[in-house]
Write a protein that binds this DNA or RNA. Sequence first.
DNA 1: TGCCAGGCCCTCTTTAGGGCCTT
Length: 201
Amino acid sequence: METVAVIDFETTGLSPDWGDRPTEIAVVLLSGGKILDRFQSLMNPGRRIPYYVTQLTGISDEMVASAPPVETVIRQAVRFVGNRPIVAHNAAFDRKFWRSELRRLSLPGDDRSFACTMLLARRVYPESPNHKLGTLAQWLHLPSAGRAHRAMADAETAGYLLHRIRTDISRTYKIRNVDHELLARAQCTPRSSLGRVFCGC
DNA sequence: TGCCAGGCCCTCTTTAGGGCCTT
């Protein structure tokens, strides 16, 4: 089964266009539902972290003061991810920070597509109370990964969610190997045609 | 104590509007 890189950013806010920067990144390499390797680092965003974000994530100005700068960590993360497909929960959010930081560094790969576990979960589990990562983890009884809203815990949980989605799709549509290409296609496919997408492959 | 944006999806829709989700 293809190895994918599941990414999660903690940041100073919602938008790099407003000057927000990452404060932490975690990447897990996932294959067949097993975590093969992990990368995690706090980083110094060069700006203050709003109080409400610290309340949410537990990441404070004091914690990132001695951390390496964003540029250093992003270069390490890019090397760790390599050419593997990238997955995230609400991938549009992580993708825009990934792109923003790669462009700052003039690194290639800022146009890479991300597969999104939230969009997949909306289609596969429409009956879930909502499609927040924490709710899905609880609702599906996924393994506990630690404190929510920290990068490694959320990346691991998104990895477990991805594996569960693959397993349920395989069972529902009698497909043995649900690879990343199918997930990527599902990302752009209306829920009503999900069955046709997988049965058609 | 900075409460910001944007892509996706649904519907009381499509020449639009609003909710969800991420920090």
